[in-house]
Amino acid sequence: MTVAVPAVEASGLVKRFGARTAVDRVDLRVDVGEVYGILGPNGAGKTTFLRMLFGLIRPDAGTLRVFGRTWGEAGPRMLDGVAGFIESPRFYPYLSGRRNLNLLAGLDGGGAGSRIDAVLDVVDLAGRADDKVGGYSFGMRQRLGVAASLLRDPRLLVLDEPANGLDPAGIRDMRALVRRLAAGGLTVLLSSHNMDEVEEICDNVTIMRTGRVVYHGSIDQLRAQAPDPSHRLLTSDDAQALRLGGDHPAVSVSAHPDGGLVLRAQPADADAYILALGQAGVAVRALHLEVAPLESLFFMLTETDPAAGHDVPAQAQPDALTGAAS
C-alpha cells in the first residue's frame, strides 16, 4: 500500500503582522480526494493561511507543502494543479466575464482557452458572459471566481469563504456546486465561518481561533464530541415540567432566561421526557431547536478564554495527521 502525497501539508506554520500573530504554529493535512474545511470566526487566520498557501505572503516559520512541493523548491510551480480564490475573487471590471477568462486562460496556457465555455456552463454564467464584470452582482463575481479556478483544471480547489455574501439560494447553489466538484474527484480546501456549511460539505475540519488550531478531525468525530442539542420548551405548567425533569437523569431541564424552559438532551431521551410530560398532564405548547449541537460546540471551542488555552477536552483533538491516508 502506498501512501499518497497529501494535497496540502502544513507544519508549525506561523505568520505575524507586527505584534499580532495571525497564524500561530498551525499543522494541517489535506489528503487527496477529500473536502476539507477550515472553520473559524472573523479574524481567526483562515485567509492568512490560504494566502500563504498561494504564496501571496511568506510564512515567518514552518513549512507548507502542496502536493509535496514547497515554495522554496518549486517557486510558483508549487501552484501547478492548484486553483482558487482568496476573499472575494477580483477581475478587470472594464472587460466582460468571458474576456477576463480569456486573459486568465492566456496566463495559464495549456488547454485552458478551450475550457472557457464549459466552465461558464458549470457555474451557470453562460448567459451573462459577455457583460462587463463591472456590472456583475456579488454572487455572479463569486461564481466567475469558481469558473476562473476551474479553468486551470485543478487537482486542488481552494475557496476562501465561497458562500460569503451570497443569498440563501446562492449559498445552496454554491454548496451543491462544491459537492458536485468533490464528487468528481477534486480535492477541495475551503474556509468558512459557518458550521452548517462545513458539516454539510466537508469530510474533515480544522477549527481555528485567533491563529491557533483548537480542533481538527473528521466531522463524524466532531459530531460525537458535540454537546446535546438545546431546545426551548414551552409547557402549560413549567414548574411541574421542571420537577419531572429531575426524574429523567438523561435530560437537563432549566429555566430559560426569556421565559419557558431549556431542554438539553439527545433525541431519544427528549422523546421519553416529553411523553412523561403528557402522561403527567403537562401539555407541550412549543418545542424548538435553539442551538444545533455542532454549532454550540463551535461556540464552545472558539469563544472560550484564550488564556485558559487548553480547556478543550483532549479527546476533541484527534490527530488528523495520523488519519486515513490509504
Binding site: G33, R77, G110, S114, L150, D153, G185
Partner: peptide, 30 residues
Amino acid sequence: MTTPATPATTATATAAAPVPPAAVHPRPVG
C-alpha cells in the same frame, strides 16, 4: 488514493463538450 484523472469540469458539466485534459498540453516554463 490516487489523483483523479478526470478533469473536474467534465465530471460535473455533463452537458458541456468534453474538456481536453491539461496533461496533453505541457505548460510553459521559465
